[in-house]
Nucleic acid binder design. Structure first.
Length: 270
DNA sequence: CTTACCGCCTGTCGGC
DNA sequence: TGCCGACAGGCGGTAA
Protein backbone atom coordinates (compact mmCIF):
# COMPACT_ATOMS: atom_id res chain seq x y z
CA UNK A 1 0.00 0.00 0.00
CA UNK A 2 1.41 3.38 -0.81
CA UNK A 3 2.90 5.03 2.21
CA UNK A 4 4.74 8.32 2.16
CA UNK A 5 7.90 6.99 0.44
CA UNK A 6 5.82 5.40 -2.31
CA UNK A 7 3.86 8.59 -2.84
CA UNK A 8 7.06 10.63 -2.97
CA UNK A 9 8.59 8.13 -5.38
CA UNK A 10 5.49 8.42 -7.55
CA UNK A 11 5.69 12.21 -7.44
CA UNK A 12 9.29 12.15 -8.61
CA UNK A 13 8.48 9.63 -11.30
CA UNK A 14 5.63 11.56 -12.86
CA UNK A 15 7.07 15.05 -12.36
CA UNK A 16 9.05 15.27 -15.64
CA UNK A 17 6.01 14.11 -17.59
CA UNK A 18 3.52 16.38 -15.90
CA UNK A 19 5.16 19.64 -14.85
CA UNK A 20 5.02 22.22 -17.60
CA UNK A 21 2.70 20.05 -19.67
CA UNK A 22 -0.77 21.06 -20.78
CA UNK A 23 -3.72 18.79 -20.12
CA UNK A 24 -5.67 18.32 -23.32
CA UNK A 25 -8.51 16.35 -21.86
CA UNK A 26 -9.46 14.06 -19.00
CA UNK A 27 -11.08 10.65 -19.33
CA UNK A 28 -12.94 9.40 -16.29
CA UNK A 29 -13.98 5.78 -16.83
CA UNK A 30 -15.01 5.16 -13.24
CA UNK A 31 -15.81 8.17 -11.06
CA UNK A 32 -16.75 6.12 -8.00
CA UNK A 33 -13.62 6.36 -5.93
CA UNK A 34 -13.77 7.02 -2.20
CA UNK A 35 -15.58 10.18 -3.15
CA UNK A 36 -17.03 10.62 -6.61
CA UNK A 37 -14.65 12.36 -8.98
CA UNK A 38 -16.40 15.72 -9.44
CA UNK A 39 -17.72 16.28 -12.96
CA UNK A 40 -16.19 19.74 -13.01
CA UNK A 41 -12.68 18.30 -12.62
CA UNK A 42 -12.41 17.40 -16.29
CA UNK A 43 -13.81 20.79 -17.32
CA UNK A 44 -11.56 22.79 -15.05
CA UNK A 45 -8.39 20.82 -15.72
CA UNK A 46 -8.69 20.59 -19.49
CA UNK A 47 -6.57 23.20 -21.22
CA UNK A 48 -4.54 23.99 -18.11
CA UNK A 49 -0.80 23.66 -17.68
CA UNK A 50 0.28 21.74 -14.60
CA UNK A 51 2.97 24.00 -13.27
CA UNK A 52 3.88 21.99 -10.18
CA UNK A 53 3.41 18.53 -8.68
CA UNK A 54 3.47 18.73 -4.91
CA UNK A 55 3.18 16.09 -2.22
CA UNK A 56 1.54 16.94 1.09
CA UNK A 57 1.27 13.99 3.45
CA UNK A 58 0.18 11.14 1.15
CA UNK A 59 -1.73 13.48 -1.10
CA UNK A 60 -0.47 14.60 -4.49
CA UNK A 61 -1.40 18.03 -5.78
CA UNK A 62 -1.31 18.97 -9.43
CA UNK A 63 -1.31 22.74 -9.41
CA UNK A 64 -2.65 24.80 -12.31
CA UNK A 65 -3.66 28.44 -12.61
CA UNK A 66 -7.33 27.43 -12.46
CA UNK A 67 -7.00 25.28 -9.35
CA UNK A 68 -5.48 22.02 -8.21
CA UNK A 69 -6.21 18.35 -8.63
CA UNK A 70 -5.99 16.65 -5.24
CA UNK A 71 -5.21 12.97 -5.41
CA UNK A 72 -4.79 10.17 -2.90
CA UNK A 73 -3.73 6.64 -3.80
CA UNK A 74 -5.57 5.00 -0.92
CA UNK A 75 -4.60 1.39 -0.37
CA UNK A 76 -4.06 0.16 -3.86
CA UNK A 77 -3.70 3.19 -6.11
CA UNK A 78 -0.89 3.82 -8.54
CA UNK A 79 -0.04 6.39 -11.17
CA UNK A 80 1.73 5.54 -14.37
CA UNK A 81 2.82 7.41 -17.44
CA UNK A 82 1.59 5.52 -20.47
CA UNK A 83 1.66 6.03 -24.22
CA UNK A 84 -1.49 7.28 -25.84
CA UNK A 85 -2.25 3.88 -27.40
CA UNK A 86 -1.86 1.85 -24.23
CA UNK A 87 -5.18 0.10 -23.63
CA UNK A 88 -6.79 0.73 -20.26
CA UNK A 89 -7.20 -2.16 -17.85
CA UNK A 90 -10.12 -2.98 -15.59
CA UNK A 91 -9.07 -0.71 -12.75
CA UNK A 92 -7.62 2.15 -14.78
CA UNK A 93 -10.19 4.70 -13.69
CA UNK A 94 -8.83 8.03 -14.93
CA UNK A 95 -6.46 9.30 -17.63
CA UNK A 96 -5.08 12.83 -17.85
CA UNK A 97 -4.21 13.18 -21.51
CA UNK A 98 -1.44 15.67 -22.22
CA UNK A 99 -0.96 17.63 -25.44
CA UNK A 100 2.25 15.75 -26.16
CA UNK A 101 0.29 12.51 -26.33
CA UNK A 102 1.29 10.69 -23.15
CA UNK A 103 -1.16 10.02 -20.37
CA UNK A 104 -1.09 10.04 -16.61
CA UNK A 105 -3.13 6.97 -15.69
CA UNK A 106 -4.70 6.37 -12.29
CA UNK A 107 -5.27 2.74 -11.39
CA UNK A 108 -6.91 1.81 -8.10
CA UNK A 109 -8.45 -1.67 -7.77
CA UNK A 110 -9.93 -1.06 -4.32
CA UNK A 111 -11.00 2.50 -5.05
CA UNK A 112 -9.99 3.76 -1.61
CA UNK A 113 -8.19 6.64 -3.26
CA UNK A 114 -9.69 9.91 -4.41
CA UNK A 115 -9.34 12.54 -7.10
CA UNK A 116 -10.81 15.91 -6.24
CA UNK A 117 -10.62 19.47 -7.48
CA UNK A 118 -9.92 22.50 -5.36
CA UNK A 119 -9.40 26.17 -6.15
CA UNK A 120 -7.71 26.73 -2.79
CA UNK A 121 -6.09 23.42 -1.83
CA UNK A 122 -4.21 24.67 1.24
CA UNK A 123 -7.59 25.45 2.79
CA UNK A 124 -9.18 22.19 1.64
CA UNK A 125 -10.80 20.24 4.46
CA UNK A 126 -8.59 17.22 3.75
CA UNK A 127 -5.40 19.23 4.08
CA UNK A 128 -6.01 22.05 6.49
CA UNK A 129 -5.63 20.17 9.79
CA UNK A 130 -2.65 18.06 8.85
CA UNK A 131 0.41 18.02 11.08
CA UNK A 132 3.98 18.71 9.94
CA UNK A 133 5.83 16.72 7.31
CA UNK A 134 8.17 14.23 8.98
CA UNK A 135 11.05 15.19 6.70
CA UNK A 136 10.70 18.94 7.21
CA UNK A 137 12.09 21.09 10.02
CA UNK A 138 9.64 21.25 12.90
CA UNK A 139 9.35 17.52 13.33
CA UNK A 140 11.66 16.58 16.16
CA UNK A 141 11.78 15.18 19.66
CA UNK A 142 10.80 18.44 21.33
CA UNK A 143 7.75 18.73 19.08
CA UNK A 144 6.64 15.16 19.80
CA UNK A 145 7.19 15.62 23.50
CA UNK A 146 5.14 18.81 23.53
CA UNK A 147 2.28 17.32 21.50
CA UNK A 148 2.13 14.16 23.60
CA UNK A 149 1.81 16.01 26.92
CA UNK A 150 -0.59 14.10 29.20
CA UNK A 151 -1.79 11.89 26.36
CA UNK A 152 -2.66 8.37 27.43
CA UNK A 153 -3.21 6.94 23.95
CA UNK A 154 -0.61 4.38 22.83
CA UNK A 155 2.46 6.03 21.36
CA UNK A 156 1.90 4.08 18.14
CA UNK A 157 -1.59 5.56 17.69
CA UNK A 158 -0.13 8.99 18.52
CA UNK A 159 2.56 8.56 15.87
CA UNK A 160 0.01 7.52 13.26
CA UNK A 161 -2.27 10.50 13.97
CA UNK A 162 -2.09 12.77 10.92
CA UNK A 163 -2.78 15.79 13.10
CA UNK A 164 0.49 15.02 14.93
CA UNK A 165 2.65 14.11 11.96
CA UNK A 166 1.67 13.01 8.47
CA UNK A 167 2.76 10.08 6.42
CA UNK A 168 3.65 7.55 9.10
CA UNK A 169 1.55 4.54 8.18
CA UNK A 170 1.10 1.24 9.92
CA UNK A 171 4.27 -0.39 8.61
CA UNK A 172 6.63 2.46 9.32
CA UNK A 173 5.13 3.14 12.74
CA UNK A 174 6.01 -0.37 13.89
CA UNK A 175 9.45 -0.17 12.30
CA UNK A 176 10.29 3.25 13.74
CA UNK A 177 9.21 2.29 17.25
CA UNK A 178 11.33 -0.82 17.06
CA UNK A 179 14.35 1.11 15.91
CA UNK A 180 13.81 3.63 18.71
CA UNK A 181 13.33 0.90 21.33
CA UNK A 182 9.90 2.13 22.38
CA UNK A 183 7.06 -0.25 23.16
CA UNK A 184 4.10 0.54 20.87
CA UNK A 185 1.47 0.43 23.59
CA UNK A 186 3.30 2.75 25.98
CA UNK A 187 1.25 5.87 26.73
CA UNK A 188 2.40 8.70 24.48
CA UNK A 189 2.63 11.07 27.46
CA UNK A 190 5.02 8.69 29.23
CA UNK A 191 7.81 8.78 26.67
CA UNK A 192 10.73 11.06 27.53
CA UNK A 193 11.91 13.84 25.24
CA UNK A 194 15.19 12.03 24.82
CA UNK A 195 13.41 8.93 23.55
CA UNK A 196 11.19 11.07 21.33
CA UNK A 197 14.35 12.49 19.80
CA UNK A 198 15.34 8.94 18.94
CA UNK A 199 11.89 8.24 17.57
CA UNK A 200 11.85 11.34 15.37
CA UNK A 201 15.26 10.36 14.07
CA UNK A 202 14.09 6.80 13.37
CA UNK A 203 11.05 8.05 11.48
CA UNK A 204 13.19 10.38 9.37
CA UNK A 205 15.80 7.70 8.72
CA UNK A 206 13.35 4.98 7.74
CA UNK A 207 11.34 7.23 5.45
CA UNK A 208 14.48 8.65 3.86
CA UNK A 209 15.95 5.22 3.29
CA UNK A 210 12.74 4.03 1.69
CA UNK A 211 12.54 7.07 -0.59
CA UNK A 212 16.19 6.69 -1.57
CA UNK A 213 15.51 3.10 -2.55
CA UNK A 214 12.36 3.88 -4.51
CA UNK A 215 9.67 2.83 -2.06
CA UNK A 216 8.78 -0.54 -0.64
CA UNK A 217 6.99 -3.11 -2.71
CA UNK A 218 3.97 -4.27 -0.83
CA UNK A 219 0.87 -5.58 -2.52
CA UNK A 220 -0.15 -3.51 -5.52
CA UNK A 221 2.38 -0.74 -5.50
CA UNK A 222 4.33 -0.06 -8.68
CA UNK A 223 6.46 2.92 -9.58
CA UNK A 224 5.32 5.38 -12.22
CA UNK A 225 7.00 3.35 -14.96
CA UNK A 226 5.37 0.15 -13.77
CA UNK A 227 8.45 -1.39 -12.20
CA UNK A 228 8.09 -2.69 -8.65
CA UNK A 229 9.65 -0.67 -5.85
CA UNK A 230 13.28 -1.50 -5.23
CA UNK A 231 13.17 -1.23 -1.47
CA UNK A 232 13.24 -4.86 -0.49
CA UNK A 233 14.24 -3.47 2.86
CA UNK A 234 14.50 -5.76 5.61
CA UNK A 235 11.51 -4.97 7.67
CA UNK A 236 12.64 -5.69 11.22
CA UNK A 237 9.27 -6.36 12.80
CA UNK A 238 6.35 -5.77 10.43
CA UNK A 239 4.75 -9.07 9.44
CA UNK A 240 7.39 -11.06 11.35
CA UNK A 241 5.41 -12.33 14.33
CA UNK A 242 6.96 -15.51 15.73
CA UNK A 243 10.26 -14.89 13.93
CA UNK A 244 13.47 -13.91 15.76
CA UNK A 245 14.38 -10.25 16.21
CA UNK A 246 17.29 -9.33 13.95
CA UNK A 247 19.04 -7.71 16.91
CA UNK A 248 18.42 -9.89 19.96
CA UNK A 249 16.77 -13.07 18.72
CA UNK A 250 13.64 -12.71 20.84
CA UNK A 251 10.47 -13.69 19.02
CA UNK A 252 8.58 -10.81 17.42
CA UNK A 253 5.09 -10.35 18.78
CA UNK A 254 1.90 -9.17 17.14
CA UNK A 255 -1.19 -7.60 18.67
CA UNK A 256 -3.84 -5.09 17.77
CA UNK A 257 -2.92 -1.67 19.09
CA UNK A 258 -4.85 1.43 18.14
CA UNK A 259 -7.16 -0.75 16.03
CA UNK A 260 -4.28 -1.86 13.83
CA UNK A 261 -1.92 -4.82 13.59
CA UNK A 262 1.19 -3.95 15.52
CA UNK A 263 4.49 -5.77 15.67
CA UNK A 264 7.26 -5.41 18.24
CA UNK A 265 10.18 -7.09 19.92
CA UNK A 266 9.42 -7.75 23.59
CA UNK A 267 13.11 -7.54 24.47
CA UNK A 268 14.27 -4.46 22.52
CA UNK A 269 11.20 -2.31 23.14
CA UNK A 270 10.15 -0.94 26.50
C1' DC B 1 -11.83 17.94 23.17
C1' DT B 2 -10.92 12.56 22.88
C1' DT B 3 -11.61 7.85 21.51
C1' DA B 4 -13.91 3.96 19.24
C1' DC B 5 -15.80 2.20 15.50
C1' DC B 6 -17.75 2.05 10.69
C1' DG B 7 -17.46 1.67 5.81
C1' DC B 8 -15.68 2.07 1.48
C1' DC B 9 -13.48 -2.03 -2.00
C1' DT B 10 -11.05 -6.12 -4.07
C1' DG B 11 -7.11 -9.31 -4.01
C1' DT B 12 -5.13 -12.64 -1.21
C1' DC B 13 -4.88 -16.15 1.98
C1' DG B 14 -6.28 -19.82 5.07
C1' DG B 15 -9.39 -23.45 5.96
C1' DC B 16 -12.00 -27.07 4.53
C1' DT C 1 -7.51 -29.14 -6.27
C1' DG C 2 -11.29 -25.69 -5.81
C1' DC C 3 -14.34 -22.89 -3.43
C1' DC C 4 -15.55 -19.49 -0.13
C1' DG C 5 -15.38 -16.61 3.79
C1' DA C 6 -12.42 -13.63 6.43
C1' DC C 7 -9.41 -10.19 6.40
C1' DA C 8 -6.34 -6.33 5.43
C1' DG C 9 -5.73 -1.63 5.06
C1' DG C 10 -5.89 4.56 4.85
C1' DC C 11 -8.46 7.54 6.75
C1' DG C 12 -12.50 10.58 6.88
C1' DG C 13 -16.92 10.62 9.05
C1' DT C 14 -19.76 10.01 12.85
C1' DA C 15 -21.29 8.55 17.36
C1' DA C 16 -20.46 8.37 22.10
Amino acid sequence: MPELPEVETTRRGIQPWVEGHRVERVVVREPRLRWRVPPRLARELSGEVVHRVERRAKYLLLHTDAGSALLHLGMSGSLRIVRDDQPAGTHDHVDLIFEQGHRLRLRDPRRFGCLLWSRAPTRHRLLRSLGPEPLEPGFDGAYLRQRSHKKTAPVKAFLMDAKVVVGVGNIYASEALHRAGIHPSRAAGRVSERRYQGLAQSVRDILSEAIAAGGTTLRDYVQSGGEPGGYSIQLDVYGRQGEPCHYCGALIRRAVCGQRSTFWCPHCQR
